[in-house]
Design a protein around this nucleic acid. Structure first.
Lengths: 340, 340
DNA sequence: CTGAAAGCGCTTACAG
DNA sequence: CTGAAAGCGCTTACAG
């Protein structure tokens, strides 16, 4: 076992000072050619690589980005991570990932843990519980300490920072409009509980699309689901009682459940019932029938978020705060079999 | 903006030495009660938290685990990460994640990057290219430097280290046996290219099951797919020409593609064709028909891998090397609609 | 051209 | 009971 070699050891072996070694390796012109080459050769031979931790302490930056997300076994979030990771890597950053499991306490704990010097900045999406409690002190605190934060997807207006989102309301509007354009008259909405910010916005878009088309808005056609695994009955009732001809689901899990339920009670999708889902994922692509979705490019969101964070980290002028931006990522409708 | 406070600043404010502050905060009995409480109160008020980087440098351990996986937008891998993250967190570790994108070079680069002090140990699954080249020097190098490595799923016998795997051969055997038990006679195998270690093992299990049941083994019933997106034709041919009544697919993407292709050419699953997939994921659960799978608990693999790594990191006796273990995680068949 | 010193933020053995 | 010193592994302004 040959432990990693340090400057100190090289200095000792070569009988020069640590400073000389350090400068030689950084190709400083201060050092004489001969010494420099000798040191470099030796270092190369022993495969010297500077210790990241020491550099971090010295430079007071870690070149790592902290990511805090609700869950990782989730197509959209893993896609965002992918997007972040690539931009981060290209710029010499690593990513350290913590999961909040949609818990406020875990989110706070993880942020505090990382904020104590481990990272240079955060990219995060709020946990459900945080959105429910509307308590963001842990985030403002971190920002107050001068650590930049970029929020994506599940964001809040109550924190001033960079954000990257999609226009949930507009995207929902367009999705519902597309159903209307295809002649659907009675369109239900299957969504999440209200405190999830994006759920709320998508509902707004749905309502607006109906009203703009002079379709009466019926509150009974909106159902809010807390837990996917126990929603079949609720959905079944919606389909049987309300005689709807289309449904806009706020995520693909809801959509596929709707389709399966529809099949069970003898409804044909898309003939009897058109289905559109928000968030394009793997299920929509492989479901039968395949599902028309609003694609929300996680990769792009991740890329953008990473870019914004790194830009802020590397901009010299520290005092340029307050000019926070909110980037809106384009969405588009991917037409598949579930709408005809 | 109030930057994080340091020991030095507290010492200055309170007009005591840094040592005194440090000891007070660690509740050292060396320090007089009065001073101790005063320091603690002050620190609490200013929300002092020790700097992780400084601690890492001092303690020569970072309390973070490096994870290197081929991709993250992948149900199985994200599930493993989830499993790792939870055990890590419980034990006060963070996880830093790098993606190899199935590229050898990225895998090497990322490992070198993290090995320079950023982490205490690795948990990894080999990239396809690494398996293809069978070049593992970057891994043995890291191990030589005294940094523990735990490999999972895509492992190799050529590196001595802890491993966590499933018994791919046995699981495949059982899956095929279950098809045979249901009266299927002509069973095809849809698998990946050979250098992917798990693909090879699953093929072995398939062959063994056939032979044990005195079913003639026909090489033409095995097809190897490199790219999912372009395999429909190959699969179509298999289904049309070979008059098979069951297929064992090495992953769920292949399985769902097989089902869709079967439907197109008028075959009913499961009546005309039974389908079993390896690796239980979200597609199998929501496909129509739902797909019978071999479940390979990523969570458990992640849990186990993290536990093994942390145990090794925290075992005092440094010289206990060489007693590497390979843990085998149980699999089981989840029966769904695609087999009758 | 080379090296000693200070410092990043901490801990701890040792003096006083 | 308190503090100065050394050290984790590095960089860099400053002396010589």
């Amino acid at each position: 076992m040959k432990r990693k070699i340090t400057l100190k050891q090289i200095a000792k072996e070569l009988d020069v000072s640590i400073s000389t070694v350090s400068k030689s390796l950084r190709n400083s012109l201060e050092i004489g050619e001969e010494t420099r080459l000798k040191v470099q050769a030796f270092a190369k031979f022993y495969n010297y690589k500077p210790n990241n931790i020491a550099l971090s302490l010295k430079n007071r930056k870690t070149k790592t980005i902290g990511i805090i997300i609700p869950e990782i076994v989730h197509h959209f979030f893993s896609t965002v991570i992918n997007g972040i990771e690539h931009v981060a890597n290209e710029n010499g950053y690593s990513v350290i990932i913590c999961l909040s499991d949609d818990s406020f306490d875990k989110e706070v704990l993880n942020m505090e843990m990382l904020a104590n010097g481990s990272i240079d900045g955060f990219i995060m999406s709020l946990s459900k519980e945080t959105q429910f409690k509307a308590d963001f002190h842990h985030i403002t605190e971190v920002i107050d300490q001068g650590m930049p934060v970029v929020m994506f997807d599940r964001v809040t207006n109550e924190v001033l920072c960079d954000k990257v989102i999609i226009d949930d309301k507009l995207a929902a509007y367009e999705a519902v409009q597309s159903l209307i354009d295809k002649g659907r008259k009675k369109i239900a909405l299957v969504t999440t509980v209200d405190y999830v910010s994006v759920g709320k916005l998508r509902t707004d878009g749905y309502v607006k699309a109906l009203l703009d088309n002079e379709i009466p808005f019926d509150e009974n056609l909106i159902i809010k689901i807390e837990d996917v695994d126990t929603c079949e009955i609720t959905i079944g009732k919606l389909l049987e009682d309300k005689a709807i001809d289309a449904v806009f689901a706020v995520n693909e899990l809801f959509a596929v459940t709707i389709i399966k339920t529809a099949n069970k009670i003898g409804l044909n999708v898309p003939k009897d019932l058109a289905v559109i889902a928000f968030t394009d994922g793997i299920i929509s692509k492989y479901s039968t029938p395949t599902i028309t979705t609003v694609s929300q490019s996680g990769i792009k969101m991740g890329n953008k978020a990473a870019k914004m964070l790194i830009d802020r980290l590397e901009s010299e002028d520290e005092d340029e705060d307050e000019n926070y931006k909110t980037e809106v990522i384009e969405t588009h409708l991917i037409e598949r079999e579930s709408t005809n």
